[in-house]
């Protein structure tokens, strides 16, 4: 075939060009399937609800710490840390400091740390 007759080479080139063009177009359209998938996975992976729930549990713990004996509080803290690790595969630690005067109210500085391997969340909040 080579060196026999070179008149038809443009057919080869055009064929290639069209093929490559169509390939790219199809590739771009195919990508849109990924948009929805990555969003859903992003939502599932970012444990927003877990973190929100943990914050409320910590606030409950701070509320309880005003009425319960210190030993009982430490137990609640151990509960949350142990169950988080066992059931949610998340490393959690938190602590509440002595109340400070913040904008007219006495609030505990609460430090919360959460890490489930995908999402790391750190917060210091006055509660």
């Amino acid at each position: 075939m080579a060196c026999m007759n070179e008149d038809g080479q443009w057919i080869v080139l055009m064929g290639l060009l069209v093929a490559v063009g169509m390939f790219f177009l199809a590739l771009i359209i195919n990508q849109s399937a990924l948009v929805g998938q990555t969003t859903a996975e992003g939502v599932l992976e970012f444990s927003k609800n877990d973190i929100r729930d943990l914050r409320e549990a910590v606030f409950d713990y701070v509320n309880a710490s005003t009425t319960l004996a210190p030993g009982q509080c430490a137990d609640i803290q151990k509960d949350i840390v142990a169950i988080s690790l066992e059931r949610k595969n998340a490393v959690v630690s938190f602590s509440a400091g002595d109340p400070q005067h913040v904008s007219g109210r006495w609030l505990h500085p609460v430090k919360i740390h959460y890490n489930n391997g995908v999402t790391v969340y750190n917060e210091t909040v006055y509660y």
Binding site: D53, L54, A57, D60, Y61, L68, I76, I83, R87
Partner: peptide, 26 residues
Amino acid sequence: TRWVQLPTEKPPGIPIDMSNTRSKAV
């Protein structure tokens, strides 16, 4: 899941290895 804080008494029907002497987070 949802965190809940329980008082000292163990809820009925829960295995006896749950503490009955302290408040707990479950």
